[in-house]
């Protein structure tokens, strides 16, 4: 799968995207966020409070319980501020 990060999430993590194998036991976006938060203190800092983040699967806004599969494009980002 492809995982993308935007705005302050990208900036704090120091990466705009990566390719990942679907981790064992990960079924929803929430599971993936929890998996990523275990990487180190920086990742834990970004993913510990999901209320400050939003997520999309295959370029559509979804809730944290949305299912994910090995070929999906997942994105994590703060609430949008365009216009």
């Amino acid at each position: 799968m492809t995982v993308l990060y935007f705005a302050w999430a990208r900036q704090k993590l120091g990466v705009s995207g990566e390719r990942l194998e679907l981790p064992a036991g990960v079924r929803s976006v929430r599971d993936l966020a929890s998996h990523l938060s275990n990487r180190n203190a920086t990742w834990s800092d970004v993913f510990s409070d999901l209320s400050s983040l939003r997520t999309a699967v295959n370029q559509e806004h979804v809730s944290w319980d949305a299912p994910i599969t090995a070929n999906d494009e997942i994105a994590f980002f703060p609430p949008v501020t365009g216009g």
Binding site: F6, A7, W8, A56, H61, A75, F77, P78, P79, V80, T81, G82, G83
Partner: peptide, 23 residues
Amino acid sequence: YVKTRAPFWKQEQRGDSTKWVNS
């Protein structure tokens, strides 16, 4: 809907400081 759904993010610069805009 552009303001609340389209995935854009603004960062503000004031002198040397930068800040991400909150929704």
